[in-house]
Nucleic acid binder design. Sequence first.
DNA 1: TAGATTGTTAATCGATTAACAATC
DNA 2: TAGATTGTTAATCGATTAACAATC
Lengths: 205, 205
Amino acid sequence: MSKDIPEFSLQRMPVYLNYLRTLPDDGTYNYISSGAIAQALGLGEVLVRKDLAYTGCAGRPKVGYPRVELIAAIEKFLRINDNKCAVLVGAGGLGSALMCYGGFKNYGIELACAFDNDPKKAGTQIGGKPVLPMDELREGCKEYGAVMAIIAVPAPAAQQTAELLIGAGIKAILNFAPVQITASDDVKVINIDVAANLAILASML
Amino acid sequence: MSKDIPEFSLQRMPVYLNYLRTLPDDGTYNYISSGAIAQALGLGEVLVRKDLAYTGCAGRPKVGYPRVELIAAIEKFLRINDNKCAVLVGAGGLGSALMCYGGFKNYGIELACAFDNDPKKAGTQIGGKPVLPMDELREGCKEYGAVMAIIAVPAPAAQQTAELLIGAGIKAILNFAPVQITASDDVKVINIDVAANLAILASML
DNA sequence: TAGATTGTTAATCGATTAACAATC
DNA sequence: TAGATTGTTAATCGATTAACAATC
């Protein structure tokens, strides 16, 4: 279903969803036009209409898009009600912060537990979720039915960690280690390098 | 200088730099070919050559690119020796983790201090760097000569925080709050929404 | 009806890839 | 020289924008 959507349109879907969810529920935004959305997000209005067309939610000429239906359509498109489960590897500073972050549930994602190779951390909890030793990674992923993982380990360990996760059945990886993780095509990977993004900004000044 | 480079080529520059820096210094990689780089990073080799051409570092046919010179050329292209200074707003979990992260210095960026509106945090240190109250933001930015900022505040406060920062002379913003920050064209903004990225991955499964 | 807004088709723009000449 | 690799020019591909018909 989301196979035939352009990559960039897909990336904007959560942006639309976020924005629509922040609108007040007092009746002033029962309908919203593509132009209004475009202006709020700094996009072209034709682009917005094209993107929204992929959700299957039809707008009404002269009126706009029905807000509640549009939110539901995007949620369905992103399969937010499927309640996917994710695990995290590397309960350091960044990993711990992500364990405590409550925003994943907005997308129907549960961050179930963390794995860490520090024996002192194993058995503790972070953000109310258990930290397990690395040698329980395979078993833990299966038990929770995890399909996604977040990697927050040091760079030298990242690729190896990814392979462990893939071996445990993980199909999508969000990697924060500053190396490009490579995997076969059936495993989806997004690499986010925070320092690199700051460096890009610095070079544009 | 970096004005005429395609956006996507610029985004790959830190990736090349990271990769080249990880290569061993034992003489086996005095020269490296575009094909080898391409394979390691999962890119096309012509693309790699085009990107590297922007750095002004010439490769030698049959040999490849001189590794040390290439690293220096990318560093110069990204202006890594300019030693930019950044501040952070929002010393919560994610903000604190970023304060402790040592990777910014790899790109010549110093994260100097944090600002937080919690009076209990003001006066403390995180990662060896001071946390200052919000009402010292303007003064603090000037004092450190900060040109960039990281926003790690809750979503509802993000846009307002951005405007404060811009008022204090900040020219580039890396935003982790899950809202799109909008600013005039002379201020560069990159929005990173961690949960949204995980949602995108989930929808691709 | 007139006007505003959607949805679609065509044109443009930018990025990637392919082909190939240049070079060591 | 022959072969490998760079660098450039042309072709392709995908995403965005422009133009405009459809519709409420």
